[in-house]
């Protein structure tokens, strides 16, 4: 399994990590090596096998649909890199 340069650029864009053009090829080669190793999974007969969705046997709980938390904007903003008037500050979105 070999990743093309375009695969690498596409994934970097999907996961929002800036990539220098010089890094594309070495990263692609490294990821390709990892994926060749992962290819071993193709040997396993998984016909009719349910994918694991719950690690230990348990029923997911339900709770009443009610507000149990919140109303603490100051605590939520306390770690923001930039905040103003009770809001997060981001670069201009609309021109």
């Amino acid at each position: 399994m070999a990743l093309t340069d375009d695969d690498v650029r596409r994934v970097a864009e999907l996961v929002r990590i800036r990539l220098d053009e010089t890094e594309v090829k070495p990263l692609g080669e490294e990821l390709s090596r990892i994926f060749s190793w992962i290819e071993a999974l193709r040997e396993v007969d998984v016909a009719g096998v349910a994918p694991m969705t719950s690690v230990v046997e348990m029923q997911l709980r339900e709770r009443e649909d009610a507000v149990t938390d919140g109303n603490c904007p100051d605590r939520i903003l306390s770690n923001a890199p930039m905040a103003e008037d009770g809001h997060f500050v981001v670069p201009r979105v609309i021109e």
Binding site: L41, P51, M52
Partner: peptide, 13 residues
């Protein structure tokens, strides 16, 4: 990849 890995995980369990 992901679906198959979760199936293999069932096998391991």
């Amino acid at each position: 990849y992901y679906l198959r890995a979760q199936q293999v995980r069932t096998r391991i369990a």
